[in-house]
């Protein structure tokens, strides 16, 4: 078994773990119980999806996924910020 086969199995294992992590985040997003729990789940989901994209990039051997991961990371920040502000004030733009 050469090193490349080990790497490809390791990446599959890592992707399974990240998918399970996304399931945990989705459970918190659906189950709540309160609005802040759902937003926390969504924020975690964004980060996990970004990491999953990076591992896809390694698996395929292409840096194209990097830009997508960067955009997901930044969008996650903005959307969570807007949702948290909405919880606090009931309005996003005052």
């Amino acid at each position: 078994m050469n090193a490349l086969a080990i790497l490809s199995w390791a990446i599959i294992g890592a992707q399974i773990m990240l998918a399970l992590a996304m399931c945990c985040a989705v459970y918190r997003l659906v189950a709540g119980p309160r609005a802040q729990d759902r937003i926390l789940g969504l924020d975690t989901l964004y980060v996990n999806a970004m990491l999953l994209l990076v591992t896809f990039g390694i698996r395929i051997g292409s840096t194209l996924f990097f830009e997508a991961a960067l955009v997901i990371g930044l969008l996650g920040f903005v959307s969570t910020l807007a949702l948290a502000k909405f919880l606090m004030r009931g309005e996003v733009i005052e």
């Binding site: 090193a3 790497l7 390791a10 992707q15 945990c24 789940g41 975690t44 996990n48 990491l51 591992t55």
Partner: peptide, 24 residues
């Protein structure tokens, strides 16, 4: 490099999984 990459990716995924498990 292949082995080190495999180790780093696995460690990172495990840490992320444990963190998300904490949500549950």
């Amino acid at each position: 490099a292949a082995l080190l990459t495999a180790l780093l990716v696995l460690v990172g995924a495990a840490a992320t999984l444990i963190g998300s498990l904490g949500l549950l």
